[in-house]
Structures are given as structure tokens and as C-alpha cells.
Amino acid sequence: MRAGVIVFPGSNCDRDVAVALGRSMGRPPVMIWHGTSALPDLDLIVLPGGFAYGDYLRPGAIAAHAPIMPAVVAAAHAGVRVLGICNGFQILTEAGLLPGALLRNAGLRFVCRDIHLRVENSYTPFTQLYEDDEVIRIPVAHHDGNYFADNATLAALEDNDQVAFRYCEPGGEVSAAANPNGSLANIAGIFNRDKTILGLMPHPERLADPALGSEDGSRLFDSLVATLS
């Protein structure tokens, strides 16, 4: 698998995701500076977490217009897999590669803690090493992760199995109490229609190492390696 991580000014999880990908791939991914306009040949493009361009205007709004983004959009349309984590998810919605928007958390505060996720669709390149309805534990760390979409978009997401993960109780129950940010239908991550693009607010790269307490996040990267190698 050939993987590349886009580095925007203000990205701050670029190293973390590169380390996690490196563990799964056996070698590090390429780091790609936002200011270039061409991409190397890749099987996977990662938009990492952070505060690209300071999140000024709206999270992801300026990054969606970075010099590298036309090439990312073109590659995505050509079927190259794209993974956006946290700020990367926000950029994907701003760039029109995923539907909906990420609003300010319902509690109006930044929230950093481990949450439980229910795997909603394990028949994708990103999630094939998870089971349907499996509950995994990985952290969130964001101020703007409150997923919103209009009713028609939401219905389409559900009808096409585009919901990847939902916030849930440790036992798997999807409840308001388990929702850290007010997301509609407890949505934590979504695919595009073709399941070639995944955006999610939680950080799988932060629990992908036994020394940090769990490897629940690693299987997402392992799934991609298994599919794309």
C-alpha cells in the first residue's frame, strides 16, 4: 500500500497518524506539504487531525482551498481511498467529498476522552477487520464534532449504509448519554456512497499501541493495508 499524509499549516496529528500507519504498513507513509499541487501515485490519502489554518473562519474551511486540494479531490473521484480524521473529516465536508457539516459541540466545550463506538458497516476497506456491531474504544478530542445533515441527506446515509461508526455505551447501546457532542443519530463517522472515503471525528491513531492502553484503533489501518496491498 502506498499511503500519503497531507500536512497543512496547523496539522498536529500528522506525526501520530504516520506512526500508526507505519506500524500497520511496516514502513512510514509519505508526508505531503499542502503547498504542492501534485500528488505522487497513492492508494490512500490521509487528512490528519489538528487545526489547519488555525480553524479560522470555520474548521476545515480554508484548508479545503489549499493548493493540494484539487489533486486530492481528483484522486478521490478516481477512486483513491481517502481517510479524514477529526480536522481531516471537517476538511472533507468543507471540500464537498462527504455530505453534512460538523458544528460546535452541543456542550460548547472542547472534549477529550475515550468514547465507545459501534461499528455500523464492516464491509468496507476501512473496517473489514472489525465485526458489524462490534464496540471499540478510542478517544475523541475536538471542539467542533457535532455532525449535522438535513433529513434527506441523513436518510440517504442510512439507506446506503454510509454510517461507519456511532457513539454508544460500552454495551453497544446508542444513547444520548453516550453522545459526546450532540451529533445527529450519534454519528461519529461516515463513508461516501462508494465507501472509498471515510471521515470520522474519533482518533484511531491514538489507541493503536499496547503501551497506550489499547490497539482498537490499529485495525482500521490494518484493514486498509489488507485491502490495498
Binding site: 506525526r15 501520530d16 466545550r109 472542547f110 472534549v111 477529550c112 482518533h203 497506550l212
Partner: peptide, 14 residues
Amino acid sequence: IWEQYDHMVMADTV
């Protein structure tokens, strides 16, 4: 307080 701080970024908080 500390849930408002990102205490895990850099993925080395043991």
C-alpha cells in the same frame, strides 16, 4: 477541567 485539554495528542501519554 482536563477533558477540555487535549491530553493525548502526540500519542505518547502513557
